[in-house]
Simulated assay, not measured.
Amino acid sequence: MPYAAATRTSPEQHSRVVTNGRAAVACAGHAGVPAEVARHHEHTVTPGQCCSVMMRSIAAPAAAVWSLMRRFDQPQGYKRFIRGCHVVDGDGVEVGSVRELEVVTGLPAENSRERLEIRDDERRVISFRILGGEHRLANYRSVTTVHEAASQNGPLAMVVESYVVDVPQGNTVEETRIFVDTIVRCNLQSLERTVLRQQAMAAAPHNNHNHN
């Protein structure tokens, strides 16, 4: 069932739990997100790691948003920090596929090697894990889900993206979270702009026809 969507990207507050006798952090998703959605964003965070979850509503059908999100082989389709992507293992569709990314000049990173962990077209879930590369995101795992959201003003999609990552030596949990949240937020903003631009281009011939 659709649920009321937040109107902006926002970090999730986490609750502390105990897993197997050790302190950990559960990323359970935002209030209002159905259990079948939130379960995809549960992460066990060990000492020396941090996690966060962001969400953004986009005024477009979930299918249109997912059509971009699902392309493990073409993240540069909406992620502006990526200059190029090459699938080096698998077909870029099946779980286990590995991609190598080239990062744009000017960022504190050069490249990244990433493995596709989940891609579920029916539930619109995609997850990847960073295997290596020249960057600061060690042991990074991301999960993104796309859902129809309740709206009285036309189609509305909710994108929920969560992650867990090591805290680099010399950095605090808060510094790490701010750094990664900024990247995720920029990617979600770019995703929204890309989807809305595609929607406008698709509607343009129809609109022109009506004016003729």
Rank of each mutant, 00 (worst) to 15 (best):
F72I: 01
P168C: 06
G84N: 15
A157Q: 10
N210H: 15
H211I: 10
V195R: 05
Y3F: 14
W66P: 11
G77K: 00
G170N: 06
R115D: 03
A59H: 04
S52G: 06
T144E: 12
P61K: 08
R115N: 07
N171A: 08
A138N: 11
A38P: 05
R113A: 02
V146P: 11
Y140F: 15
H206Y: 07
R119W: 06
G77Y: 04
R22N: 13
D166V: 08
K79H: 03
L101Q: 05
Y3K: 00
Q198M: 10
E110Q: 14
E174N: 06
Q189C: 13
S67R: 09
E122W: 03
I126Y: 12
E110A: 15
G106W: 10
N153K: 03
R99Q: 13
A35C: 04
P2H: 00
P47F: 12
F81E: 14
S127A: 15
S112Y: 05
V95F: 10
H14R: 00
L101P: 14
A149C: 05
A203S: 13
T105G: 11
S15G: 14
A38H: 08
Y140R: 02
N171F: 07
N187S: 15
L116C: 15
D91K: 01
D120V: 01
A5Q: 01
G170I: 02
A200R: 05
R113W: 04
H14P: 00
T194F: 11
V33I: 05
A4P: 00
S190M: 02
Y140L: 14
G133E: 09
V146I: 09
M1A: 09
A138C: 13
V143K: 11
T7R: 04
S162W: 02
G106Q: 11
S190G: 14
S162V: 07
A149Y: 01
V87R: 07
W66A: 05
E110C: 06
Q198A: 13
V45M: 05
D181N: 11
R129M: 08
I178D: 08
N210I: 05
E42R: 07
V104D: 09
R99K: 15
R8E: 09
R39A: 08
F81L: 12
A35Y: 03
L68K: 07
D89C: 04
N187F: 08
E100Y: 02
V167G: 03
G29W: 00
P205S: 05
Q198H: 12
Q198L: 10
E134R: 11
A138H: 13
I178R: 14
T19H: 04
A150L: 01
A109K: 14
A38F: 01
M54A: 15
I118C: 15
Q49L: 10
H43M: 01
E192K: 01
I130Y: 05
H41G: 15
D89F: 06
P11V: 01
Q74A: 13
R16G: 00
V159A: 00
T44M: 04
Q49K: 13
V25C: 08
L101T: 06
G133W: 04
P34M: 01
V98D: 11
Q199R: 06
L137D: 00
E161S: 15
V195P: 12
V184Q: 03
Q49R: 13
A109H: 04
M55D: 11
A109E: 12
E94Q: 14
I183T: 14
P75R: 07
V173C: 09
A138D: 12
P34R: 03
V104E: 11
P168Y: 00
V103P: 13
T44R: 08
G77E: 08
G77D: 09
A23P: 07
W66F: 13
P11A: 06
